[in-house]
Each structure stands twice: as C-alpha cells, then as structure tokens.
Design a protein around this nucleic acid. Structure first.
Lengths: 221, 221
DNA sequence: TTTTACATTTTTGAATGCAAAATTTGGGAT
DNA sequence: ATCCCAAATTTTGCATTCAAAAATGTAAAA
C-alpha cells in the first residue's frame, strides 16, 4: 500500500531532522521526491499530524512539529509513566529467555560505556527499554510508547552527557536489570521513574541549547 | 476546516455505536450522509485509523475497530498506567481550587450512587478521572488519555455493576480523593492502579458478553 | 521614502476521473 | 442440486482538476 509507505518515509525524513522542527513541509517538493501525487501525501501528513509529528495550519500548510521545552518535559513524563508501567507488567510476564536477552544487551551496553562510545551506548540503552516494553506483552502500550519516543527521539540524542550522569545512568541500569531478574515489579517501577527523571533533567538542558540553535538557524535562513 | 469536522463526526458515529465494532464503513454511504466527497472522508478515516478507532484493510475498505478481549485488557492496563501517572503528577501541581472542584464532583457522584443512578454515576466518575488528568497539567498525557479512553468507552458503559463492586468503587474513590487532598502522589498512584484493576475485571466480563452479542448480531445481519 | 491598496502568483483544500483490485453474479460441469 | 470458474459490477486507491485562500509583488499616494 502506497500511503502506508509514505507515512513511514516522511516519518523517517522528520526523525532524521532533514526537515527541521518548525520548518514548512513543501507538498509539491515532497511529491516530486517521493514520486507520488498530492492525495496520498496529504493523507500521510494527516496521519502524522494525529501522531503529533506534524502540525497542520488551516490554509497555511503543514510544518514539522516544533516542540517547546514544556512539550518535551510533558512527553518525557509520559514516557516515564509508560516505561514504569511496562516494567511492572513485564515482571509479571517476562520469560527467563527474555531476561537473558536483556542481560546480554545490558552487558553490551556497559561495554560501549567502558569504550566511551556514546552513540552505541544510546542504541543499546534504547534497545533495552524497548525490550522491556515488548516484554510487557501489551501491543497497545508498545504502540503508544513507540509514538511518544518517536517524538522525543531527536532530543534524546543531542543530550550532553557528563561523565557523572553517564555513570549514574549505568548504575541505574544495573538496578533495573536486577529488579527485572528478581521480578520485582514495584521496585522496578520505582527505579524506572527515577531513571527517566534523571534523563529528563539532562534533556531539559539540551532542550534549551537546541532551542537557541534553532532560533539562530531560523534567523540565518 | 472540513476534514477536521469530519473526523469528529465520524468519531461520534463510531463511539455512539451507530456503526458497530467490526462492521464495514461504507464510503459511498457516509459521503452522501455527510454531504462531502470521498477525499476528506478518506483523510478522516486514516486519522481515525491512526487513533485506533478504525482498521484499514488494503483494497478491502475500512471497518470500525473490533477489539478483542486481549485488546481491551491491554488498553485498560495502559489507561491504568496513565491515570496513575496523572495522579502522581497532579499531587505535585494541583491547586486547592481544583481539589475542591474534584471534591464537589465526588460528592455529586456519591449522591448518584445513593440514588442508584448508574448512568449519572458513570458520568461523574469519568469527570473525576478527567479532572485528575487535567490537573496533571500535561497536555501530551491528556491527549493520550483521551485517545485511550475513547477506544474503551463503549465497553466501560456496558459493565454490569454488582452492588458489591459498586460499593467497592465508591470506597476506592473516597481513598483517591483523600490521597489527593493529602497530595500523597505515591499513595494515589497505588490506589489508582488497584482501582482500575478492579474495573478491568468488571469490563473483561462485560467484554465476553458483548462479544457474544456482536457475534449474534453479525450472524443475524 | 514609506505605506497602503490592488493585482498576480502560489499554495492549499476538496471534487472528480480513472485504473486496479475485490466482491458479486451467472453459467456450466459434475 | 451443488460446486467451481469466469465475467460483470462494485469498491478501493491514486492522479488530476477545479475553486478558494493566502502570500507576494507592484504601483500609487501620502
């Protein structure tokens, strides 16, 4: 199906930042680039608007969603809640094999931490959280989590990570894995909340920096 | 804007159950009824599909989303998580005035309970939960909560309520209000989880009943 | 020189048209 | 009479077209 594919491709363009937040989305240009007519493109844009990645302005076109610092904090709070819920549910349902896989992923992530490879560390970090969400066995939750993380993904990766914060995050991840292995739902929920709260603080700082950069970029352009 | 309006109208049609879950959505018919062409209708259907209210089948049209019991339980779990999160956040931010308003709504709900007016009781119940979510001051959370509750709303109201369960629900609501007034976030979160867990059990039973009814309806039709 | 009013252009929003896929219908064979 | 296969009809998906709104550019007046 064409329009499904289009949604994915535009989503990728937005998440890659190729169209930066706040920028206009030129229908005509995208139509040429994707070799489609305006009808499926517009359908895709409306789907993405429902997801929160695109803002539609009546008679003034669509723009890549521009998130304020407040928006970002709100989304992180929701993300925190969803991860905590996933952790609790996962403890009730997770299999030994899944715990083993997450343990392996964790060890890999720690290795990237020791090697100082932030990109790979983030990748592993994300994989672990996604594995926990998947282990909850709740597709509705998985879908919402995917939607929320997609909206904050870009900010997540511009986070300036200090050695102290990084060490803390790794330590928290040890505790997460531990609680999972003990299948301690309440404890895991608690840790995940604290874990994301720390992340949130990081991202808020990054958010300010990025906002300034964007403003600057807009003025230059 | 036309298509925005169309989304709302079709959503209402679906939530009213005028097009029952699992039934085909006839484009042609709806176009005539809403006096619009197929383009905005199809845009609206894709938005509703992104919301989870409509299922799109390639080259086979769209159907009103048919939720399995598993889907229902999943959504209730997510709803539980969001309400618990909202409760925690609300405790940090809620004003005395908002607590007062919720207290008033609570008293009203209890009055409807005493009068045995289940419909009005449900209405008040929903208003309270929505007020708590609103008090969290997190629009992203509010939006997701609205989306999730929309999908389970119909099931919520077909719940067969026994006197015992009803009494328990009212009691739990007393505890919710109490925790809010004490601004005890952790406690409120705990209560809300238990509160919805009880509800979930009710709805699961109702879910089975409704499924049978739908099957029957499909066979007749 | 600046501002405002108007015309032109561009872009958005919705309707229509057309090709492909699926469902339905009718005929024939078993 | 039932089952199966093919043709006709309906419906879906996308492209194109048309109308309306906004942006832009120009010219005239203050």
């Amino acid at each position: 199906m064409l329009h499904e594919d289009v949604v994915g491709r535009i989503r990728a363009i937005l998440l890659d930042g190729e169209i930066p937040p706040g920028a206009r989305i030129p229908e005509r240009e995208l139509c040429e680039r994707l070799q489609i007519s305006r009808t499926p493109l517009r359908e895709a844009l409306k789907v993405l608007a429902a997801e929160g990645l695109v803002q539609l302005l009546p008679h003034r076109g669509s723009r890549a969603a521009k998130l304020t610092d407040k928006d970002m904090r709100d989304l992180f709070e929701v993300c925190q809640g969803l991860e905590a819920l996933a952790g609790e549910l996962a403890c009730e349902r997770i299999s030994d094999a899944e715990i083993g896989a997450i343990g392996t992923a964790h060890d890999e992530m720690v290795r990237h931490y020791r090697e100082g490879d932030l990109i790979q560390y983030y990748r592993g970090n994300r994989a672990i959280h996604e594995a926990i969400v998947a282990a909850a066995g709740n597709p509705a939750l998985t879908g919402l989590y995917a939607s929320v993380t997609a909206r904050i993904r870009r900010a997540r990766y511009v986070t300036p990570m200090t050695p102290q914060r990084w060490a803390l995050a790794v330590k928290e991840h040890e505790a997460i894995l531990n609680a999972l292995q003990r299948r301690d739902g309440a404890g895991l929920s608690h840790i995940l909340r604290a874990h994301l709260r720390h992340k949130r603080e990081e991202v808020l700082q990054a958010g300010f920096a990025e906002t300034e950069a964007n403003d600057l970029g807009l003025r230059i352009a």
